[in-house]
C-alpha cells in the first residue's frame, strides 16, 4: 500500500523561469522544474550515476541534463539516457499559482521507467 501525500511547495515564483529548485521532503531531495512552457515537473534530485544534483541541471526537450556528467533524464517518466538508470518521478501540478506534488515516501517500491 503506497501512501500518497499531497504537499504544497509554495508559489511558482519561488522557482526561476526555466530552472529547477531542490526541496527536501522527509529527508529526500526532490528536484522541481518550472518549464518556460508553463509545465511543472518533479523528480528525484539525485542522479543515480554519481549523485549529481539534478535540480542544478539545464532543462530542454522534456529532459534534464545532470550537471556532473551529462546523463539525461526524462522529466515525465524518469527514464535515463544511460540504461538502466532512472529516477523517481512525482505528479506535480499548479493550482492558482501554487505548486503541489503528490509525494510517495522513498520506501515505497515505485521506481519504474
Amino acid at each position: 500500500m503506497n501512501k500518497i501525500i499531497r504537499i504544497n511547495l509554495g508559489p511558482v515564483e519561488g522557482i526561476p523561469m526555466g530552472q529547477g529548485h531542490c526541496f527536501r521532503i522527509e529527508g529526500e531531495d526532490i528536484a522541481v522544474f518550472r518549464g518556460r512552457d508553463g509545465s511543472i515537473s518533479a523528480i528525484e534530485n539525485t542522479c543515480p550515476h554519481l549523485k549529481g544534483p539534478l535540480a542544478e541541471g539545464i532543462i530542454g526537450d522534456g529532459k534534464v541534463v545532470c550537471p556532473l556528467h551529462g546523463h539525461r533524464f526524462d522529466l515525465k517518466t524518469g527514464k535515463g539516457s544511460e540504461t538502466p538508470e532512472c529516477v523517481r518521478t512525482f505528479e506535480a501540478s499548479l493550482e492558482n499559482g501554487t505548486i503541489f506534488i503528490a509525494y510517495t515516501p522513498e520506501s515505497a517500491e515505485n521506481v519504474h521507467c
Binding site: 501525500i5 511547495l9 529548485h21 526541496f23 521532503i25 531531495d29 509525494y103
Partner: peptide
C-alpha cells in the same frame, strides 16, 4: 535544498 514540513495527509 529548501526544507518542507509535511503537514497534511490528504489521501490514501
Amino acid at each position: 535544498p529548501q526544507l518542507i514540513e509535511v503537514l497534511q495527509e490528504a489521501e490514501n
